[in-house]
Structure formats: structure tokens, C-alpha cells
């Protein structure tokens, strides 16, 4: 595993804060939505509770972040697909449970490193990060435990876990590209992420995925508003009721 090219992002200027809040807020909003799709479909009752818990944490983070950028509901329900700034990773459909866990593992490890870094700084995201880092520690723990169980479980679970990790691998490079207004060293973050991931995978007796980490088309373009096909359908479902009643309050 090698690090993709990254640079240190510029510190937040006044106009950079809403844009950065939007990027991080969209990540949380979209992943929360995907996790919400599991309700009533989880493999075991404890996971109904756990997945909903993570979805709720993320939704809470999204609401704080989107409110830093404008009106949370206008931003969530009235933007077009091309205006969303989330990572392509978080919009990927749930797939089977292993696929969802692979997405959780990649994203939670990244988000935990990000919040840790931002919580230690003096920037506009420090207060949120300080609270969110505790929530995300639990998300990491959940994803790691399941990765290890599935990776080192049965033949079938190993195969599925590996398939999930492989399928999503190409979306992981985007997480470490600079985001204006998010004051972190992407390259350093990526090195830590790779090291932590290595550790989890070896505990799960899984080989690290191979291949590029930048997608085949416009790598890391979620932050620029280029998304994957399933995302439009997700938004159509999420936004239709709100859009059907313009100006109504709920």
C-alpha cells in the first residue's frame, strides 16, 4: 500500500468555512442515510440497534455542520446532486453486511483520525470534533470488531468481507485529498490510516486490497460534485417529500 499524492490544505479563510462544513457535513449526512436503509433488515437485533446508533451520531454531526453552512433542511433537501460535496465512498449502496462493514471501516478510521486532528486545533471545527471523536471511536470499534469476526469467521464470511474491501478500495484515495478550510495534513493522515488499516486486516487474517485507490474515472471527484449513479436515486428518495410541498414546515 502506498500513499497517494496529497498536500497540506490551506487554513480556513472566512469563506472556506461554509465550503468545508458542507464537505464534512455531506459525508455524515449521506452515510447516515445509507445506514438508515438498514432499519428492519439487519442480520441480528443487536445490529439494528448498533447501525441506528451510528446513523444517529452521523446525522447529529451532519446537522451541526450543515448549519454552519446555511439552513440544514434547505441544504439537505433542495440541492441538486452536482452540488453535494461528499466523498463517493459514503454514497455507495449498502450491499451485503460485509460491504457495509467495509465502508464503515474505511470511513470510520479516516473520520476518527480527522476529528482527532481537528479537536486538537483551534479552528472552527474544534468544538464539534471534540464531541464527535468520542462517537467515532465507537464507530471504529464496531467496524473493527466485525471486520475481524467476518474476516476470521467462516469461509463464506471471509470471501464476502474480502469482496467488500476490494470493491470499495478505489474510493479510499479521495479521503486524503486537501479540502479547503480543513486544516489537516492529508499525507500524514493517510499514512496513519494505512497503518491502522494494516493492523486491523492482519487481525482479521485478510490481505490488504490491491489496485489503485483513486477510481477509474475522475478520482476523488465527490468533493467537486461528481458522484456515482446510485447517488441520484438515493437523493430522489430522500428529497421527494420535502420538495413536493414547497415552503411547508414539518
Amino acid at each position: 500500500m502506498t500513499a497517494t499524492e496529497t498536500t497540506h490544505a490551506t487554513p480556513a479563510g472566512p469563506s472556506a468555512v461554509p465550503a468545508a462544513a458542507l464537505a464534512l457535513g455531506d459525508d455524515a449526512l449521506v452515510l447516515s442515510h445509507r445506514l438508515g436503509e438498514w432499519a428492519g433488515h439487519a442480520p441480528v437485533l443487536e445490529e439494528e440497534v448498533a447501525l441506528a446508533n451510528i446513523a444517529l451520531d452521523l446525522l447529529g454531526q451532519a446537522r451541526v455542520l450543515l448549519s454552519m453552512a446555511g439552513d440544514e433542511d434547505e441544504l439537505a433537501f433542495l440541492r441538486e446532486e452536482r452540488s453535494f460535496r461528499n466523498l463517493q465512498l459514503v454514497e455507495q449502496p449498502n450491499g451485503d453486511f460485509a460491504h457495509t462493514i467495509a465502508r464503515q471501516l474505511y470511513f470510520s478510521l479516516y473520520q476518527h483520525l480527522l476529528w482527532t486532528e481537528l479537536a486538537a486545533g483551534q479552528g472552527p471545527f474544534a468544538p464539534l470534533a471534540a464531541k464527535a471523536v468520542k462517537e467515532t471511536a465507537y464507530h471504529v470499534d464496531h467496524a473493527v470488531q466485525w471486520t475481524v469476526r467476518l474476516g476470521d469467521g467462516t469461509e463464506e464470511s471471509t470471501r464476502r468481507m474480502r469482496a467488500g474491501l476490494d470493491a470499495l478500495w478505489k474510493y479510499t484515495g479521495e479521503m486524503f485529498r486537501p479540502v479547503e478550510g480543513v486544516d489537516v495534513d492529508g499525507a500524514a493522515l493517510e499514512q496513519r490510516w494505512l497503518a491502522e488499516l494494516d493492523d486491523v486486516l492482519s487481525r482479521a487474517r485478510l490481505d490488504p486490497p490491491e489496485g489503485p485507490r483513486t477510481g477509474a474515472w475522475r478520482a476523488g471527484a465527490g468533493r467537486e460534485g461528481l458522484h456515482t449513479e446510485p447517488f441520484g436515486r438515493m437523493l430522489a428518495e430522500m428529497q421527494h417529500l420535502h420538495r413536493s410541498h414547497p415552503g411547508a414546515s414539518w
Binding site: L29, G36, E48, A52, A62, R63, H240, L241
Partner: peptide, 19 residues
């Protein structure tokens, strides 16, 4: 209705309830 809740506040309440 979780995926179609018309506001983020309502969505959070509904998710918590189903949980």
C-alpha cells in the same frame, strides 16, 4: 419512512424511535 423523512429533525426522531 426513514429514508423519506421531510426534515433532518424529523428524520433523527424517527430513527431514534425505530431504534
Amino acid at each position: 419512512w426513514i429514508t423519506r423523512a421531510p426534515s433532518l429533525r424529523r428524520k433523527a426522531i424517527l430513527m431514534a424511535k425505530v431504534q
